[in-house]
Write a protein that binds this DNA or RNA. Structure first.
Length: 590
RNA sequence: CGGGGUGUAGCGCAGCCCGGUAGCGCGCCUGGUUUGGGACCAGGAUGUCGUAGGUUCGAAUCCUAUCACCCCGACCA
């Protein structure tokens, strides 16, 4: 590709509304252009990377036996009513009406559409298993789109859906997708980790997220360096930190703690470890009577240790909180505790509240909690003696660094990640309400067993940049770089020898199957170098008059400090050997 | 959704308080000189000052409404 036949527009300064480094760099490198909040045009340079990501996905999906189809972006509301998601999805689901006033949605995902295909097309067990996928535009009307293409409203996703005759078959399909995902992200040159993920309302154990490791990631991952345990922090099990409860040693004392509303402040004031304090969190569950009229909310008190944090996903698994909860209002708190937030505790409530206690708290003794009186805490609080044994003990906190690993093989570490893929066993969650069945050998209808598997194609662009950049710009892995190699001739517009050598090298690299761009603008070297370092093309060849006199050019990888002098006759071979291309899968792919 | 902020040239910004007919840097165009790390000189083009009302002889500037965008808030007693 000659640059003058392509399109390039780089910016020296990033638009002021860009918030994360990947978004700034993509805007500056001219890869994307913002059209509206969370909605981007993929400019030619950015689209090249997207196409390379898609190509790798297509190859690996085919190798894993998945079949491509293409389902519509606009889907009729009826389909979404069948599964109840028309009601359940909320404002994130983009709803539109056609000219006749009929309801449609802009797809955020395609379970309904694909299950509709399956129930119409799959009639016999002989057609199973089958795995349909597409790469298609999605729309999720995020409350607050941000982080550029990593949390956009419109984005491109690969979504695959497997159909099997039974759970054992579905498990096989799941494993095949899991393996394909590992190959996909490996080929893309990303550092990633597959982690256990929350399965939400669907339940079961089969759900993994693929997280690209990056400090700026939105997700926290707990993993055990001594074993292969890794889980999203939403899910990672927090074991009790105290094996058993020690006998009380202190009397319960009401202690003045004026103005100390946080556990941290109380511990500092009393010169006691934060781990001796207990944090009180008040939740509320909306209630309605049989006519659907609102009743006063049910108030819950949750206790975690002062240095721990509540995990809302885990709390949602407590019976009674499962149908949804919110943080209590100050009015509700005052009504039940007779006290403003900051001094709340489980002793001396004005009105009873449901109590749920973290496993670690349940084994604490001589602990500190709020006294339900402004500016006072209790110290030396003990279960059984000062308040009843907790009836409801559960894992309701986030794990922290140093916690014992749930597999018993060491302690947990935490790192941040960007979720770029998710594999999920669905069972019959969609096939049952949509009555998607097939006939088994006995001619009996059976529900299809499903799994779904997503990859955020456009999010991968951002995730790769978050993981690979420096102060000059992007550093693409070879496999998804918009170009693998750039030739920068010094004086292309005015030096015959340079132009001839650059043109010749350009042709030679094309012939060698390398994705190369020739910067034939005749720009000054500083401009060229700055542009290509910003864009992040991994391999650069500089052709200059000076070197050509000795029949040399220069090679520099984007991560290299300095250029290497290379004789002209060997440069093509050298570059080819430098490009780390993991082989495409053999067999069925083109 | 609640609070805060910002909308002025392709990008980054000043001008607004104190009303007088719009400016700077980068980029862009023309010519020249340059040419191994974002060159220099000379000349030039580009704005319905987010939108709609209002006040005024006169509004980017003051007032009202509206839209868009950004930030903070949803681990907290």
């Amino acid at each position: 590709m000659r640059l003058t036949n392509f399109f390039l527009s780089t910016l020296r300064e990033a638009p002021a509304d860009a918030d994360v480094v990947s978004q700034k760099l993509m805007l500056r490198a001219g890869m994307i252009k913002k059209l509206a909040a969370g909605i981007y045009t993929y400019m030619p340079m950015g689209l090249r990377s997207i196409r390379k990501i898609e190509k790798i996905i297509h190859e690996e999906m085919a190798a894993a036996g998945a079949v491509e189809l293409l389902m519509p972006v606009i889907q009729p509301a009826e389909l979404w009513m069948e599964t109840g998601r028309w009601q359940k999805y909320g404002p994130e689901l983009m709803r539109v009406k056609d000219r006749h006033g009929r309801d449609f949605i802009v797809q955020p995902t395609s379970e309904e559409a694909v299950t509709d295909i399956a129930r119409n097309e799959i009639k016999s067990y002989r057609q199973l298993p089958v795995n349909f996928y597409h790469i298609q535009t999605k729309f999720r009307d995020e409350r607050r789109p941000r982080f550029g293409v990593m949390r956009g409203r419109e984005f491109t996703m690969k979504d695959a859906y497997s159909f099997d005759r039974d759970e054992a078959g579905a498990a096989k399909s799941y494993d095949a997708m899991f393996a394909a995902y590992q190959r996909i992200f490996t080929r893309m040159g990303l550092t990633f980790r597959a982690v256990k993920a929350d399965t939400g309302a669907i339940g079961g154990s089969r759900s993994h997220e693929f997280q690209v490791i990056a400090d700026t990631g939105e997700d926290a991952i707990a993993y055990c360096p001594a074993s292969d345990y890794a889980a999203n922090i939403e899910l990672a099990e927090a074991l009790p930190l105290l094996a058993s409860r020690a006998a009380p040693r202190q009397a319960m004392v009401k202690t003045p703690t004026p103005g100390k509303a946080k556990c941290d402040d109380v511990a500092t004031l009393l010169d006691l470890p934060l781990a001796q304090t207990v944090k009180s969190i008040v939740l509320a569950v909306e209630k309605v009577n049989e006519n659907g009229d609102p009743l006063p909310a049910e108030v819950w008190l949750l206790l975690v240790r002062g240095d721990h944090e509540l995990n809302e996903i885990k709390a949602g698994k407590i019976p009674g909180l499962g149908k949804g909860f919110r943080f209590a209002t100050e009015a509700e708190i005052v009504e039940h505790f007779g006290c403003k937030p900051g001094y709340l505790g489980p002793i001396g409530l004005k009105k009873p509240a449901q109590l749920a206690v973290d496993r670690t708290v349940a084994n604490m003794s001589d602990f500190i909690s709020g006294a339900n009186e402004e500016d006072f805490h209790f110290t030396g609080v003990n279960w059984a003696r000062d308040l009843p044994e907790p009836a409801l003990v559960a894992d309701i906190r986030n794990v922290v660094v140093g916690d014992p690993s749930p597999d018993g093989k060491g302690t947990l570490a935490i790192q941040r990640g960007i979720e770029v893929g998710h594999v999920f066993y669905l069972g019959t969650v969609y096939s049952a309400p949509m009555k998607a069945t097939f006939l088994d050998e006995n001619g009996k209808p059976q529900l299809l067993e499903m799994g779904c598997y997503g990859i955020g194609v456009t999010r991968l662009l951002g995730a790769s940049i978050e993981q690979n950049h420096d102060d000059k710009g992007i550093i693409w892995p070879d496999a998804i770089a918009p170009f693998e190699v750039v030739i920068c001739p010094l004086g292309y517009d005015r030096n015959e020898a340079v132009r001839a050598a650059a043109d010749h090298l350009h042709k030679e690299l094309i012939a060698a199957g390398i994705d190369v761009v020739l910067d034939d603008r005749g720009e000054r070297p500083g401009v060229m170098f700055a542009d290509w370092e910003l864009i992040g093309v991994p391999h650069r060849i500089t052709v200059g008059d000076r070197g050509l006199k000795e029949n040399n050019v220069e090679y520099q990888h984007r991560r290299d400090e300095k250029a290497t002098v290379v004789p002209v006759p060997v440069i093509a071979h050298l570059v080819k050997s430098k490009i780390a291309r993991l082989a495409s899968p053999k067999g069925e792919t083109a």
